[in-house]
Design a protein around this nucleic acid. Structure first.
Lengths: 209, 209
DNA sequence: ATTATCTATAGATCTATAGATAATGC
DNA sequence: ATTATCTATAGATCTATAGATAATGC
């Protein structure tokens, strides 16, 4: 039993992990199937056996990331919070579950997904698939705020794009500053705190009717 | 004479422009020499004839951009401004001369140069070649501020990296917001104003001893 | 004579698949 | 019998260069 579980996990999942590392490190275009196979220690034909194509392999990984965040978002439905606090909690969930995977994640999301119109469509599609279907209370809450005139009319997907765009870009800046010899990680940590407040202001500002 | 000037400009420069567009649109890895040649309307062997390799073609373009900003920076030496105002003027010069080339420029700088350690070395090298050599007064000024204990010890190159990192990432966020249907360009413009102030705070914060 | 341009192609990848072989489940 | 894995290779690019041909400068 242990053996079987181990077996079905091994190759299929090892490929997934190797691919994630490769995609994050090199970006989609520069990631190579042969290189992923080498990282995973399997013949590269296995990547196609399990995931058919490079494009599909990428989407499987991305979809998994999005779905990993759903439970954290789900907790939000239990409390009756002011909208601003919901924004904070959404951010915190993402800061815990999505970004820490790797410092390269923010750039990746920023450039491969947000900045590229083609991939952005894919993100929107996944947001609909996962977040919007599983979090009806969030959608309701957003529509409520719009109806009350507190924020401008905006779709749930666009609303999520805004949150991700602001935070991904600030995290990119922070990560670069961490690597600057003259600054270091203490400064990066201080920047992070400052960004947290400013970003919230920027988001509310953008949502203002 | 007109004919000659036109002629020596044509192919060599047309390639440069086509390459710039291609690099900005697709990123270095995804930019293709054949595609650049097609944009320029020349045989692709011409790219190698004039610029030898893809790598070199890229560097020529990037070096040109940096040098195009030098005159604007030069003006700063004439006035005796507070350090914070110098920061503002540096930002304004960049906002006028570097970013407007294309909305994709900020992502490009962020990911191809700042986020990639290998290319970052190239940026540092170019900063030394151009800015640091041509703007001794700025270096002096920075060292003065450090000596007086107003800002932490930091090299000129690292100082520039900080400025570029903060601004490139905020511009990336702004450009994405501009494309979000629920927000639009008025919101993007409002964001830009808010970011301008916040970024200045963030930079001063990071430079604080 | 020198400089610019084109055609053709070498040589190196990369994605994807076909077909053979080994492992696993009934 | 089915599922997993490997080897070998097709087919499509891509960068770069060699060699022929046209344009330009003395």
């Amino acid at each position: 039993m242990d053996k079987k579980l181990n077996h079905t996990r091994t190759t299929e999942q090892v490929i997934l992990q190797a691919a994630e590392a490769e995609f994050l490190e090199k970006g989609y275009a520069n990631a190579k199937m042969l290189s992923i196979a080498q990282r995973a220690g399997v013949a590269h034909s296995m990547l196609h056996y399990y995931y058919r194509s490079k494009e599909n392999l990428f989407q499987v990984i991305f979809r998994q990331k999005m779905q990993a965040m759903l439970p954290a978002y789900d907790e939000l439905s239990k409390e009756e919070l002011p909208f601003e606090d919901i924004l904070r909690k959404l951010r915190d969930a993402r800061d815990r579950l999505l970004w820490p995977q790797s410092p390269k994640m923010p750039y990746f999301v920023l450039t491969e997904v947000l900045a590229n119109p083609q991939n952005r469509g894919m993100l929107l599609h996944m947001i609909e698939d996962t977040i919007m279907q599983h979090l009806p209370f969030l959608k309701e809450r957003l529509e409520n705020e719009i109806a009350e005139g507190n924020i401008r009319p905006i779709s749930m997907a666009d609303f999520f794009m805004l949150l991700i765009a602001i935070d991904a870009s600030s995290l990119s800046a922070i990560n670069i500053c961490r690597d600057i010899p003259g600054l270091g990680s203490e400064t990066a940590a201080r920047l992070q705190t400052t960004y947290r407040e400013h970003n919230m202001q920027l988001i509310l500002d953008a949502l203002r009717p």
